[in-house]
């Protein structure tokens, strides 16, 4: 019953290496066919025979993985773990898809992973930053506690990035600077991660290309975002105030004249007052009917002045920043295609 249960599980799972390229070794191909036919004993025999001859690293890893699967199916857990350990050493980045592989096989795989020392999933993210103001993200996983040294090497130049005891996922930030603080020279660099514990050691590497570029300068502003200049003149609403004032002043002069006139001298012709009073009234009416001239809007003028001062101050800051930026270098770091895993 127990065997039948595992067989059902394995039937619904993909065969090891499914979707990968067809192996060159004939025995390995036959072993894969036997595994597909649920003939695990024959699959183990053929896989072991295939490992007895010279094969590529990928085929070797595939053969050991097939062995791990087959031993798992036959309940030979120790042998399965040993086979998976060999697989991991040959291909440290190898992963099993938990959604397609049975939990039992997956657990054995991770059990094997914890028993070997490898550096997995070394990733150097592409980055672009101003020299001295940014870092290159580096991350990897160490499967067992170990002294981990991370270096960057280009030709004879070696830069120590980090040295620490670590296990699990490690995240590093490399400022791409030499020990004296200068930026690393442009060119191809190799990020090497070396892990060592007792007699075991492992290293993984990732090639990156570092290029220099000029830092973009900031454009000068012609306006402040979100702020607009206001009109500096405004047209007052049309009123009868001019005519009213002219009438008031003329009336004052008329009343004063009539009040001060001496009775003994008789009443005058008021010719002079008529002329000037009429001129004042006409001027008042004309000013009333005339379209008001735009007058300075003091509040808006003050606002615009402050806006211009702010804009000038901001442009001055931009100019200073551009002076600094022209002296800076922009580093572009790009990861290159990964070479073979590790050893």
């Amino acid at each position: 019953m127990r065997h039948c249960g595992w067989l059902l599980v394995l039937v619904v799972c993909l065969a090891p290496g499914a979707g990968a390229q067809t192996p060159q070794n004939a025995d390995l191909r036959l072993a894969l066919q036997a595994y597909d036919n649920l003939d695990f004993t024959r699959a183990i025999t053929l896989a072991r025979r295939a490992l007895g001859v010279r094969m590529s690293g990928a085929d070797q890893a595939r053969a050991y993985e097939l062995l791990g699967f087959a031993y798992s199916a036959t309940d030979s857990q120790v042998k399965a773990v040993d086979a998976f350990k060999q697989t991991i050493l040959l291909d440290p980045d190898r992963e099993l898809d938990p959604s397609k592989i049975s939990p039992k096989i997956t657990s054995l795989f991770y059990s094997a992973l914890g028993q070997v020392l490898v550096v997995r999933q070394l990733r150097v993210d592409s980055a672009r930053f101003v020299g001295g103001q940014g870092t290159v993200p580096i991350r990897f996983t160490v499967t067992s506690p170990a002294r981990v040294r991370t270096r960057a090497v280009s030709g004879r130049t070696t830069v120590l990035i980090d040295s620490s005891v670590a296990t699990g996922t490690v995240n590093l930030r490399w400022p791409a600077q030499l020990a004296n603080g200068d930026l690393v020279p442009a060119g191809d660099w190799l990020i090497i991660v070396e892990a060592g514990a007792a007699q075991n050691s492992f290293s993984a590497s990732q090639a990156v290309r570092i290029a220099y570029g000029s830092v973009d300068t900031l454009p000068h502003l012609t306006s402040l975002p979100g702020y607009q200049e206001l009109p500096e003149t405004e047209v007052a609403p049309q009123t009868w105030r001019p005519a009213g004032l002219a009438f008031l002043y003329t009336s004052g002069a008329l009343i004063g004249t009539l009040g001060l006139e001496s009775t003994t001298l008789g009443s005058g012709s008021k010719r002079e007052l008529s002329v000037v009073g009429a001129a004042a009234l006409v001027a008042g009416v004309v000013m009333t009917l005339r379209k008001p001239a735009p007058r300075p809007a003091e509040g808006n003028i003050l606002y615009n002045r402050l806006l211009h001062e702010q804009l000038a101050r901001r442009n001055q800051e931009i100019a200073q920043q551009n002076v600094t930026r022209r002296k800076q270098v922009e580093l572009s770091v790009a990861a290159l295609p990964k070479p073979s895993g590790g050893r």
Partner: peptide, 16 residues
Amino acid sequence: RASSEIGPGATVSFRA
């Protein structure tokens, strides 16, 4: 003397 501007550049005044 009292004076008032009744328009742009136009002033009317009364004096006693």
